[in-house]
Amino acid sequence: MTAARPAWLDRARDAILAADQGYFATFAPPPEGGQRSSVMILFGPSAGSAGGSGGTSVGGSAGSGEDVVLTERAHTLRTQPGDISFPGGKREPSDTSAAAAALRETQEEVGIDPATIDVVATLPDIYLSPRQFVVTPVLGWWREPGPLDAVDPVEVHRAVRAPLADLLDPAARFTVSHPSGYRGPGFEFDGLFVWGFTAGLLSAVLDFGGLTVPWDRSVERPLPDRYRPGGPQDALTKTATEGRA
């Protein structure tokens, strides 16, 4: 069953693309660029609502509204093992666009048929300087939800459909602190700790869409030990810290 795209998603797209250039300038790629990659920020009708089925519904009973597809990276990966991320990866020569790369990676990682996804917008590039990656976020609507699974166990430990009602709950939100001085938005649900690049992008889309519920930004939580300096997330933290300096 096809689900109609919610108005807030179009509102988020329009607001992001119309935002003052300074909002994105902090993370804009340098002239020489870097290795190209894409991530899919994919929203869909929550499991149990019209068109929703399959996958893991995080945080309890299904209901109306929307959810977002997130992955827990395989714990055996050399970089960012166990991190929570959006589906995505590097752009291949066969990919005709950043959106095509995001759609392909989403299918390969979690088994979602690209034909069931509407590409809502290709958002401005973000540069991750330590690894010299130019990441293009792609905003998508999963109009015909189906099964969701960790198709590629080498890359993905599990895939979840996280209801926005859970993510927007003020009790699930906090400010993440890092010994390097980094501070940024964080979410925690179903035992998963979301921070850094993924949390920042998700928080921005929710803000631009007008969905954010006021939450106490003074509530500060340190990173788990695995993200401490020298850990797998250290390079990403340095990127965010440098960009905000």
Rank of each mutant, 00 (worst) to 15 (best):
F187Y: 15
A204V: 00
D190R: 04
G140A: 14
W141G: 10
Q233K: 11
S49P: 10
T175F: 04
F208N: 10
D169P: 09
G146F: 10
S180V: 02
D118H: 03
G60P: 01
S97R: 04
E155H: 05
A245K: 15
A74S: 15
L17V: 00
V154K: 02
G44A: 07
T239Q: 04
G210F: 01
D67M: 10
G146A: 14
V39Y: 00
A150H: 15
E108L: 15
G33H: 13
Y182P: 03
P29C: 10
A99I: 03
P185D: 05
V156R: 14
T198H: 09
F86M: 10
P179K: 12
D10Y: 02
R228M: 14
G243W: 09
R143C: 07
R13H: 06
L42E: 10
L164G: 07
P6K: 11
T175Y: 01
Q107M: 15
V219L: 01
G54H: 03
A150C: 13
P124R: 08
T241N: 08
G231E: 07
T212C: 13
A121P: 10
G44Q: 04
S61Y: 07
D95W: 03
R226K: 12
R183D: 06
R173V: 08
P6C: 02
V119C: 11
H178G: 11
A19V: 06
T76Q: 11
T212S: 14
E72A: 07
D234Y: 06
S218P: 00
F193M: 01
G196T: 00
G60R: 07
L42I: 09
W141T: 08
E105P: 04
A25S: 06
T116C: 12
D225K: 13
I16Q: 02
G231D: 04
G34Y: 11
Q35K: 09
A99E: 01
L42H: 09
V135K: 12
R5V: 02
R158Y: 08
T79L: 11
R161K: 14
V151G: 08
V39N: 00
L236D: 03
V156G: 13
E242R: 15
E109N: 14
E188A: 13
R143I: 05
A25P: 01
A150D: 13
V160A: 15
P87L: 12
E105V: 07
G51P: 03
D67G: 13
G181H: 12
T136E: 02
P6G: 07
F24G: 04
V156P: 13
T2C: 06
G186E: 03
V154E: 08
P170S: 07
